[in-house]
Amino acid sequence: MTKRIFEIAFEVVTFLLMFAAIYAIFIYAPIEKTMGIVQKIFYLHVPAAFLAFSAFFITFLASIVYLYKKDQKWDVIAYCSAEVGVLFCTIVLITGPIWAKPVWNVWWTWDPRLTTTLILWFIYLAYLMLRGVVRENQRANLSAVFGIIGFANVPITFFAIRLWRTIHPVIITSEGINISKPMKYTLLLTFCAFFLFFLSLLKNRIKLERLKINTENVKAVYEEIFSS
């Protein structure tokens, strides 16, 4: 019972924080001088990017633990985290160009960070697709191995692209945005709100996946009884 109350309280706090974050973004935070109103997308873009990378890192860790312990629990965590990660990564890849077009005057540049994020998005989409087509008895093993390979790819891709871009000059050299205090507070608030939102998504997704597995098990037992 207390667990249930705690869960509801968690969701309510997340909800309220998200509201506060929206208020802070649109009302409290000042409009940036050079970039104008479009800069406000920054409060969405940065936390989403951070959480996407964290989610993939969770998948990576959970995959390692799964291969070590062979407990299905970790496979479920890796899977759900990858799914939530792809969601946040998609948000990053959509908000990025919207912000980039008015500021850098291009939708996309092959900056190492942008490209690494895009490749990571492809890799974890492949991870989700792999889970869909692989035979059931090997699903957890194969996806765990791919979860590890996918994350190990991040640093290599990053360095490789740094090498590559030297011949393709990019528009942006540094992201030197001077942040005023209200902006900093807004960012901090959206970070907290997004973090809680991420946790609640992940938690509920894991819960759903467990229910699904339980249902499958019950169904299997049911069929066994009735077939015999």
Binding site: I123, A126, L130, R135, T157, F159, I161, L163
Partner: peptide
């Protein structure tokens, strides 16, 4: 070896291989 255990072998193989080969290709 991974895609041999799946139903749609060749499609999934290219989807797995391409993003991972990116750094190798660039270098």
């Amino acid at each position: 070896a991974m895609s041999a255990a799946t139903k749609s072998r060749d499609t999934i193989l290219s989807i797995l291989v391409f993003p991972i080969t990116v750094p190798m290709l660039i270098a």
